[in-house]
Simulated assay, not measured.
Amino acid sequence: MATANGIPVGLSTASVYPEDTEAAFRFAADLGYDGVELMVWADPVSQDLGAVGRLMRKYSVPVLAIHAPCLLISQRVWGADPAAKLERSVRAAEILGAATVVIHPPFRWQRRYADAFPDQVGELEDTSHVAVAVENMYPMRADVLLGGRERGAERLRRRGPGRAVSTFRPSLDPTDTGFAHYTLDLSHTATAGMDPMSLADRMGDGLTHLHLADGRGSPVDEHLVPGDGTQPCAQMCRRLAESNFSGQVVLEVSTQSARTRADRSAMLARSLEFARRHLDRSARRADPSVPVNPRDPGCPPSGQIARVVSPSDGPGERARRDDR
């Protein structure tokens, strides 16, 4: 696995939308990503572990992480019970050999789920090798009603993020509750008007998973190619490279503006090049004794299927912008 000196760099399957899950595996293989983060959503293949296992073998690309179906658009994927979906996501990670499950904080209206959420996350981690990494989110901002992305970004630069309403309980910042593991999303910090470096400080050693993307402070979540916005993407990558970070970095970028497959491939290649360049640990050799898996030094490495998905499904093996 050609990692950035020990830090796996993955591709979110959401990054190829409106193409499908298989297209993400194909792009990851063609461009040399170390694996994928499987977004479980409306695409039927993303919900079928047998189908995912076949893609892992076909393209020799492992699943590094699973993004649980907690988006508004995936509220009915894998059922309507959010607690059951979180548990199913962890079991899916065990089956596929993924080290991490990415989960959003509960919505405000999910009161029973929200009350039990911290305990459930802890229990799932205690009974598996999987890190349940709770992600920072962003509020619904009044700027959305005031005139689009550009005006919203300009308003943020001049006046701050303005009025906003969080749809998450207790807040959009998971460090307000406190968890063992976190996902830091740099597009979300841009939209929320948060300082990502300060958030990383609060996450501390619990920072397990980075969604590497950029943003300009628009009132809508942009997920730009790193280097195309205002977030300290290069600085964050260097911070991880200079630390004992043992999780994964995943490019979760929007390529919906791509007019052709070649355009999309170029955006994803540029994103990967940015990540590899700034995560390079060659100047500071990583301790080889530090495990990639943040939960259990003795568990299978990311991408190795822990148990058979179906009788025919065996292990899957993997085989410039200016600095901001």
Score class of each variant (00 low, 15 high):
S265D: 04
H188Q: 07
V220Q: 07
R169V: 04
H188T: 06
P196C: 04
T260D: 02
D205F: 04
A234Q: 13
F179R: 14
G227W: 10
T177D: 06
T189N: 04
A241Q: 03
D214L: 07
L199N: 02
T177I: 13
A153F: 05
R216A: 04
G152D: 01
A180K: 15
G160Y: 00
S187G: 15
L186I: 14
P219C: 09
A200P: 00
S243C: 08
T177F: 14
D228I: 01
A153Y: 05
Y182D: 08
V220E: 11
D176H: 13
D228E: 15
D185I: 04
R216H: 07
P196Y: 10
D176G: 02
E154F: 03
S243T: 08
T175Q: 11
G160Q: 00
S187T: 03
F168E: 13
L251F: 07
T230G: 08
E222K: 11
D185N: 09
A164M: 03
T230S: 14
A262R: 13
G247V: 01
G206W: 15
F179M: 12
H223C: 01
Q231V: 09
R259S: 15
R238S: 10
Y182V: 04
S265I: 08
S187H: 08
A262E: 15
G178A: 09
V225G: 03
D263Q: 11
T230W: 15
R239K: 10
A190E: 09
R151G: 01
S254V: 01
D201T: 09
H181V: 06
A200V: 01
Q248M: 08
E252K: 05
H209D: 12
D214T: 05
D195C: 03
V220T: 12
G204K: 11
V253A: 12
D221M: 10
H211K: 05
G247K: 04
A180T: 12
E222F: 11
H181C: 04
R159G: 07
T255M: 11
G178L: 14
Q256T: 07
G193N: 00
D205R: 14
Y182W: 12
P219R: 04
C233W: 14
A192R: 01
H188V: 08
E252V: 00
R239I: 03
G152E: 00
G217I: 02
S187Q: 09
A241K: 08
G247W: 05
A262W: 06
S257K: 04
P232K: 02
G215E: 12
R238T: 02
Q231D: 06
G162R: 00
R158I: 05
T208W: 03
E242S: 15
V165R: 05
H211Q: 05
R158A: 15
M267G: 02
H223E: 12
S257T: 05
T167W: 12
E154R: 15
G160W: 00
S187W: 13
A266I: 07
E252I: 01
